[in-house]
Amino acid sequence: MAKHVIQLNNEFIQNKNRKAVAPVPKRKHLGLILVVAILLFSLASMSLIKSYENLQKQVALEQSAKKQYDTLSKEVATKKEEIKKLQDANYLQKYARSQDYSQSDEKVFNTNNPLVDGDGTSQ
């Protein structure tokens, strides 16, 4: 035999039904918490992106400084070699002749005398 259950309409049953339908109070501010979390993560992400961009600028600046340093160091080495060459009397004479610094009426004689050093002084 099938039994029929009759629902009583008293105050206890009505309160029980109201509690079942009411939303859970813990989820009441879930949307606000989610918005704040998204805002915080976006601020952190923006800061991270700016830091990365600054890092890339610094890397590019470092590379250009290295290139400039290399070119300047090569130039300094070249100048040092020229200074050493200009201290040699034979090279200085050859350089002066090649640049036409000799006077028009000057006669230049090349001597291969073993008694005279390369700087023109005698031994």
Rank of each mutant, 00 (worst) to 15 (best):
K79R: 13
K79M: 14
K66G: 06
L72K: 15
I83T: 14
S51H: 09
Y69G: 10
K67C: 01
D88S: 06
S73K: 15
A89T: 08
K84D: 05
A77P: 07
Q56Y: 04
Q87E: 15
L92Q: 15
S64H: 09
S51D: 01
E82S: 11
E75A: 13
A60E: 07
E53F: 07
I83S: 10
K84C: 00
K80D: 15
K85L: 09
I49W: 12
N54L: 00
I49H: 07
S73C: 06
Y69S: 11
K80E: 11
E81M: 11
D70G: 02
S64P: 00
S73I: 09
Q68G: 02
S73H: 08
K79D: 14
K66I: 07
L72A: 08
D88T: 01
K66N: 09
K57N: 03
K80C: 12
L92P: 09
E53P: 01
V76T: 06
E75V: 08
E75Y: 10
E81L: 12
K57M: 01
L92Y: 14
K79H: 12
S64C: 02
L55E: 08
K57C: 01
L55M: 14
V76G: 01
D70R: 07
Y52V: 09
L72I: 00
L86Q: 09
L72V: 03
E53L: 12
Q63I: 06
A77L: 15
E75H: 04
I49M: 10
Q87L: 11
Q63P: 03
Y52E: 04
I49Y: 09
Q58N: 08
K66F: 04
L86M: 10
E53I: 12
T71V: 10
E62D: 04
Q58P: 05
L92G: 02
V59I: 08
A65S: 08
A77M: 13
Y91E: 15
E82K: 03
Y91I: 11
K74R: 08
I83A: 14
D70V: 11
A65P: 00
K50C: 00
K50H: 08
E81Q: 15
